[in-house]
Structure formats: C-alpha cells, structure tokens
C-alpha cells in the first residue's frame, strides 16, 4: 500500500505518479489522505491499480479513468468520473451534478444520492446510484445503463438516444421523447448483473425501464412551423 498525503505533497505530484503506473506495476494499491475537497484527484489513470481517497473531493474526481478502480470514502463534487473509458469508480457518499457525464465505459457506483444531470450524454458507461438522482439526468444519453435504486427528479432522459434507464422509485417527470418500456428477461439479466457488481441488494423485478421513443431521431414534416 502506497500512501500519498495530498495536503503535504500537492495535486500535480499525485496525478503524475498515478498516471505513470502501467500494467506491469507492482504498486497496485494506493491511498490518498487529506483530500479536503480538492479538485481533479486521480484523473487520467490508465493502469489496473486501486486508489482509495480517504475523504470528500471537489470537482472532476476520477475523470477520464481507464482500467483503475477508484474508491472515494466520502462525497464528491461536480463531474465525478467524467468521460470514464473503463475501470470502476465507487463513491461511498453523495455525488454533485453531472456524475459520469459523457462516460464511454466502466462502472460508476454512487452509494448515496446523485444530484442533477447524472449521466448526461453518457456514451456506454454503466451508472448505479443506490439513492436518488436529480433533475435532467441522462439528458441526451446515448448508450449504457443508468440504474437508480431510489427516485428520479424532473425531466428524466430528455432527448434520449439508446441508453437504458432503470428506476426503482418514482420518476418526477419524463423528459421529451423518454417513455416507459417493457421490462424483458434480457433487461432483468443486465440489471441483476449491475446490481450485483454495485453491491446493491435491490431486486431487478422492482424496477421500471425507460428508454427513447425515437420520435426525435428524424425530422417530422408536421413540425415545420417550429423552425
């Protein structure tokens, strides 16, 4: 276990050290102490290492992650795991706005609540939120799965493409072109796998599935007057 004191040694040193680890490294386990809400902790990693942040972070924690497993023992500010490619990010507390935005792959687990715009423009990432999510979540989401064990706020899945949304609680309102869809066996299977990997004991049958009505994909001549 390598320990890095962020307050004493600074952010650039942390990120350059973690970014220089490669697949052959034998320093596979890292601990970051005294994060004190700092921004951009453990960003741009590209090695199968485990990083534990001992406290809450500010903006853009674990951004652009590839391969690494990053756990935050606290809450995170805006933009956690933004544009993640692969690997895993686990947040023990809450996440602020646009968690997992534009993510292409990997798994983001939020044990508490996520606020507005969770999974905005997601492109293949899987996000599991144990609590609730805020308004405008999964806006323009293109691919991947967003699983919400609690409730969803206003305008869920507005202008959605092909991402799948699973919500166990209530949805305050659906955004434009987002509709409830039939839960088929293959969806229950995907959901079960994600819940297992996220350490969540909710049952897949308790969820509803939402997706795109695909009415915004093509120009509709009846809407000419709007242009």
């Amino acid at each position: 276990m390598q320990t890095y004191d962020l307050e004493a040694n600074g952010l650039s040193g942390l990120n350059s050290t973690l970014q220089s680890q490669n697949t052959e490294t034998n320093q596979t386990s890292w601990e970051v102490v005294n994060p004190k809400g700092s921004h951009a902790i453990a960003v741009g990693l590209d090695a199968p290492i485990e990083v534990t942040v001992k406290g809450s972070t500010g903006y853009y924690c674990a951004g652009m992650n590839q391969q690494a497993t990053i756990r935050v023992e606290g809450s995170v500010g805006p933009g956690v795991a933004e544009n993640m490619m692969s690997g895993e990010v686990i947040v023990d507390g809450d996440a602020s706005q646009y968690a997992g935005a534009t993510g292409h792959g990997g798994l983001l687990v939020i044990k508490g609540n996520a606020s507005s715009r969770c999974g905005i423009s997601m492109k293949g990432i899987d996000i599991v939120v144990h609590g609730n999510i805020g308004h405008m979540s999964a806006f323009m989401a293109q691919a991947g799965n967003l699983v919400v064990c609690g409730d969803a706020g206003d305008a869920l899945g507005d202008s959605l493409y092909e991402a799948r949304l699973f919500v166990r609680g209530t949805v305050q309102s659906l955004g434009a072109d987002c509709v409830e869809k039939e839960m088929r066996p293959e969806h229950l299977e995907v959901l079960k796998d994600l819940l297992d990997r996220a350490g969540c004991d909710a049952k897949p049958e308790e969820f509803r599935r939402y997706g795109s009505a695909r009415q915004l994909y093509n120009f509709d001549v009846d809407n000419t007057a709007a242009y």
Partner: peptide, 12 residues
C-alpha cells in the same frame, strides 16, 4: 453551526 460554501473545500 450551519455553513454554506460554493464548494466543499470552503468547509473543510
């Protein structure tokens, strides 16, 4: 107390 911050950093 009750505290407000634009960021958590302000409260640490």
């Amino acid at each position: 107390y009750v505290a407000f911050g634009s960021e958590y950093r302000a409260l640490v």
